[in-house]
Structures are given as structure tokens and as C-alpha cells.
Design a binder for these strands. Structure first.
Lengths: 333, 333
DNA sequence: CTGTTAGCGCATTCAT
DNA sequence: ATGAATGCGCTAACAG
């Protein structure tokens, strides 16, 4: 299976290999006449560029690494979709790796991407070590959705605090004063921001937060259901906020199991709007993170960085979320 | 940003570049003692293999192209997740491209993958031209989920006919004789198979299919809702089968809009189980395609093909679907 | 504007 | 078991 090379095209067109290279790929000098002749010759013999050779020679690549935690979670799928869309438009390719939130897998992936000589990586980081090792090797990094300590890399975030604050405020406005908050982690900026927004809304309205109402669980629908069960067993509340789509699933399952009417008996709201939330009855009040747009922003930012269009200073892009009020939230009982 | 090369490692370890190559990457001869010394030297100076150089030299690549229609559809996301999982385990990378079901985008992607010299591609084909051009250039192709004419390539399919037949039979068993069937396309083996299964179940039970009950729509929830509306406006039926998850969304929306009780007034069932279907009330009776497993099979098959472990004859893998009975189907009114 | 020369980093001969 | 030499296909310098 020998494929034609620039040499072959050169012979066919009666020019030199470098002229072929210039005419076809590089925007170097080449007279329109020659350009056309070379193009024709290339088509005739079915020539197709070899990215490996080009990358090796010019030490650049148009492959971008994308490192996410769970492609089956619509949040990550949407994020990846937005990234891919933007990369494709710019003639870049997306190498997608699922690290399952596992630090070891994440590190393995980073090494692979290093080996591929990708110019940039977009990552929803599990460990600060991952962005660091990449940057230490000259790879541009954009952290998506969350921030771990001071990585120094560009970052694209949803304004979690503002979104959670608005959502909580909506409930307070409906008369709720005892609101449960279901959350998995607060080490990352994501969870921390949402919790901060929850607290801020209370403070804005002169309400104390009963710390018992903040229920810590793990990133798993079954665990979230169990935690919700314990929460509802032990305390009184008129509303629950779930900090993300997975936890919302668990909370909803538990409320349904009890056959509690939503929103009459209890209101339910979730951060991170995903499709099923508008299909259930009643549909859930949520905060839409504009996840696809978040992904697009990551890609745009990374590409600008790669092209050297940005000042050295790290950039922080915040995408404003939007409150979507639906039927699952109503006046406090 | 100059990264260390085999030369540098060789100097550091006091051996020749070829020995480094053998010790590190290739399983050629190298004494354990030297192997270790080279390994240590490599770690010390932070050496990392250059895939581009390796690929160029050995004309193989460990990147696999994956061409799908819509990453935001959980079906494709699950498929991709299954593929990625298997590829990662085998130390391959996934280059994921979304073609949006557009033949032009699909063809562009194929050319890119050709340029990347990937040894194989997994595609949910839009056009037969795509698998063809890839194969003509020596790239192994596995078609996922559907088959377009005679492509000659390996293919991994859900047994659509069997699944739809079982689903329809379930309804007939409940006493339904007038069942609507909502479908978008029947040119691909996917839709054709599901429709065939629907017919076969009727035939099995000596029932005529009223052709009017087969409602053709387009791959879009809004269109599906509109088609469902027309269908319910014009004909009597006691159940509806939606041929995929997107159409199910439209059908459900329309039934809810009418405030018809499910399953009392009408039963609803869907092909292609996705998460929201078990969250709505009542939960939907569906056919689970084992989509992730479908993806895994695609990757396994492709890798086996690449490694030359398979006989020349094209292979057709069928993954048996599974009927999941939930609350949305009940006795005919 | 075009051709010539050189070499990117690696894996593979072929010697030894 | 190891080393020297070669070239994968391409593009960046340089010269013309």
C-alpha cells in the first residue's frame, strides 16, 4: 500500500517537491499557473498529505487533546461537542480521552498527548499535576469547567456562584427558608462556587443557613438518592437544590419513591440543565450552564493562545449561566 | 522548546540511539541491564517518544478515527464511550469527529483521517462513499449501527428486527391491535430493520398492519411531535412505538400536551433506551441496544482486523438487544 | 517565484 | 546483544 508523495506529484506536474509543498499546503510563493497545475496533478494521482511527516518536520500538529471525566454524562458530552465543533471549523482534530476522574488515567493520557506533540490540551482536571506536566513541556492548556489551585493556565468557567445564588434566590422568593443542598464535592471551584452562591443568597436575604441542610454525598446517582433519603428522614425542609445533573437524578428518584408531590410537598431544583429535566413531570427548574458554548469558548481560547494572539497573562473566561424556571418549584408549603 | 530525543538518551546512557529505541519502544534485543540503564536515563532527562516520527518511520499509527453523527445524542455518546474505553485499554487513541449527518462533512473527515494515516476508522456512515474511499486507501473500516448497501466492510449492528419484533409482540400480548409506528428513515438498515420487526410481529400473530399507522417523520423531536399530533388526530390507536430516542421525545411531548394518561389512554414504547426514559413517570418501556457494548465491539473488531487476526471475509457482529418493560405500556383500552 | 539541500526523530536493515 | 548507516515524507533555509 504505497501512497503517492510530494515527489510523485512533483514528477507528474513537472516541478520540484518544494514547489508542490508550497502550492498545496503552505501559503508560500507559487504562481497561480503552477498552483493549478500542481493541484491537478495531485488530484490525478490521488495524493494526500501525510500529517506525520508534516508534523515531524514543522514541529506543529493540528491535533488537540481533550481530557474529560465521563463522556456518558451529558455535561461532558456537550462540552466535547462544543469543543469539537469549534476545532473542526478551524481544521483541527480532537483526540478525546476519558479519564473517568482517575488521576492515574489522567496522567497516562497527558503522557500520550505529550508523545503526540499536540500544541494544546483542554482538560477538566482531576489533579493539578496534569495541567502542570503539560505546561512544563510547552503544551498550552485550557482548564474547562473547574480550577484546581493555582495552575496558571487559562480557564473557562461557568459562573457557579452567580448561578447558584440566582437559583436559591428564586426559592427564597417563593417563601422557602429551609432549603436542602445536595452536593458532592467542594474542593473544586465548581462545587465550591455553587455552595458559595447558595450561602450568598441566604445572606442577601438575612437568612441563616442551617449547616445540617447541606448534605454531602458522592458523584453517583445511587449515593445521591441514599443521601437524600437520610436528609429527608432527619430534617424538615420545603425545597432541595441538587448541585449537578447526576445528584438531581438521585434526589428525584427518592422524592418519587416517597410519592411526594412536587412542588406541593417539596420543591426541587438543579444546577446543570440536561434534556431529561424538561421531560419529567413536572419539569425541573434548573440552571443552564450553556455547556456547548462553554466548550466552544475553551476551543476558541486555546486556538488563540496557540496562534500567539493572546498576551502572556492567563485568561479567565466566565460564561454566565441562566435560570430556567419550570414546574418543579412552587410556593413553600 | 527543544525536547530530548533518543540521541540525548543515548548519550546519557552511554549507548547508541538504536539501542535506546530497542530498549524503550520496540521489543527487540536488549540486555536487561542495558534496558534498565536506558530507562533510567530517559526518566532522568524527561524523554518522551515522538509519535509523529515513529509513525512516519514505521508507517503505522495508534490513532483511530471515529466518525459519528451527533455527540449530543446519548446514543452516539455511549457508542463513542464504548469505543474509547476499548481503544484506551489497547493503547490506541480516539480521534473523534462529528459529521452532523452531513455527507460533505463526513467526506472532509475521511480525508483528514487519511492524511493522519490512521490504520482504521469506525463510522456510523452517512454515505457509502465514505467507507469506500477509506478502504480504497488501505484503511480498515468498521461500520457501526448501520449498513449502507454493500460496503464490504466489517459491521457491528444491533439486531433491530429482533428488538422491534419483541417490543411489538409485547404490545400485541397486551391486547393492542392498532399500534402506531413513528419512524424517521428506512433507507438504512437501522430503520428498515425496526420496521421489519414491527411487521414481523404482526404477521406472527396473524394481524394486518394498517399502513396508515406507520408515520414517517424526520430525525428531530419537534418534527416527531408534529407527526405524532397528525397521527393521533387522524386515526385511532391504543399504542405508539417510537423508532428511536429522539422520536420518543416528540411522541411523549405530544401525548403530554393532550394530557392523555399513559398507559391507560395510550401506551408508549421506544426503541433505544436512554437515561431519561426511566426518569419520566410512568417510565418508558424500551429496547436497550447495549450501546456501550456495541461501541466496545466495534473497537475490538477493528483492532483485531488491524492486527491481522481475522480472516479476509467481512465480519458481521450482531448485538442482541433487550426488552425492558416499564410502566408506559399496559393493557389495550 | 522556483529548485537544491538538509534534516525533523525514529526504527530498521545490516554488520559486528 | 549492540552500533552504524539509512531514509520514512515533508518543509525550512538558502540560493538563484
Amino acid at each position: 500500500m504505497k501512497r503517492p508523495t510530494v515527489q510523485d506529484v512533483a514528477r507528474e506536474a513537472g516541478v520540484s517537491p518544494s514547489t508542490v509543498s508550497r502550492a498545496l499546503h503552505t501559503r508560500g510563493y507559487a504562481s497561480p499557473e503552477v498552483r493549478e497545475r500542481v493541484q491537478a496533478a495531485a488530484n490525478r494521482i490521488g495524493y494526500v498529505l501525510d500529517h506525520n511527516a508534516r508534523n515531524l518536520r514543522s514541529r506543529t500538529s493540528t491535533s488537540i487533546g481533550v481530557l474529560i471525566s465521563d463522556l456518558r454524562n451529558p455535561f461532558y458530552a456537550d462540552l466535547a461537542a462544543g469543543i469539537e465543533e469549534e476545532l473542526r471549523a478551524a481544521e483541527y482534530q480532537m483526540v478525546l480521552v476519558n479519564d473517568n476522574g482517575d488521576p492515574a488515567e489522567e496522567m497516562r493520557a497527558a503522557e500520550t498527548l505529550l508523545a503526540m506533540r499536540v500544541p494544546g490540551v483542554i482538560v477538566t482536571p482531576v489533579t493539578a499535576a496534569c495541567p502542570r506536566i503539560l505546561q512544563d513541556n510547552g503544551v498550552h492548556v485550557v482548564c474547562a469547567d473547574r480550577e484546581l489551585g493555582r495552575s496558571g493556565s487559562d480557564v473557562v468557567l461557568s459562573d457557579n456562584k452567580a448561578g447558584a445564588r440566582e437559583l436559591t434566590e428564586h426559592l427564597i422568593g417563593l417563601g422557602h427558608t429551609r432549603i436542602g443542598f445536595l452536593i458532592d464535592e467542594t474542593k473544586w471551584s465548581t462545587g465550591a462556587g455553587r455552595l458559595a452562591g447558595f450561602r450568598a443568597a441566604h445572606a442577601d436575604h438575612g437568612l441563616e443557613v442551617d449547616e445540617q441542610l447541606i448534605a454531602y454525598t458522592s458523584f453517583d446517582a445511587v449515593a445521591a438518592q441514599e443521601t437524600t433519603r437520610e436528609l429527608l428522614d432527619s430534617l424538615d425542609m420545603t425545597a432541595i437544590v441538587a448541585a449537578n445533573n447526576v445528584l438531581a437524578q438521585g434526589a428525584l428518584a427518592e422524592i418519587k419513591r416517597r410519592r411526594w408531590k412536587i412542588p406541593r410537598r417539596i420543591s426541587l431544583a438543579a444546577y446543570d440543565d440536561v434534556p431529561w429535566m424538561s421531560l419529567v413531570a413536572p419539569a425541573l427548574t434548573t440552571v443552564d450552564q450553556h455547556t456547548v458554548e462553554l466548550g466552544r469558548n475553551c476551543a476558541r481560547l486555546l486556538l488563540a493562545r496557540i496562534r500567539g494572539e493572546l498576551p502572556a497573562r492567563r485568561r479567565i473566561v466566565r460564561v454566565a449561566p441562566r435560570l430556567i424556571v419550570r414546574g418543579s418549584t412552587g410556593p413553600a408549603a
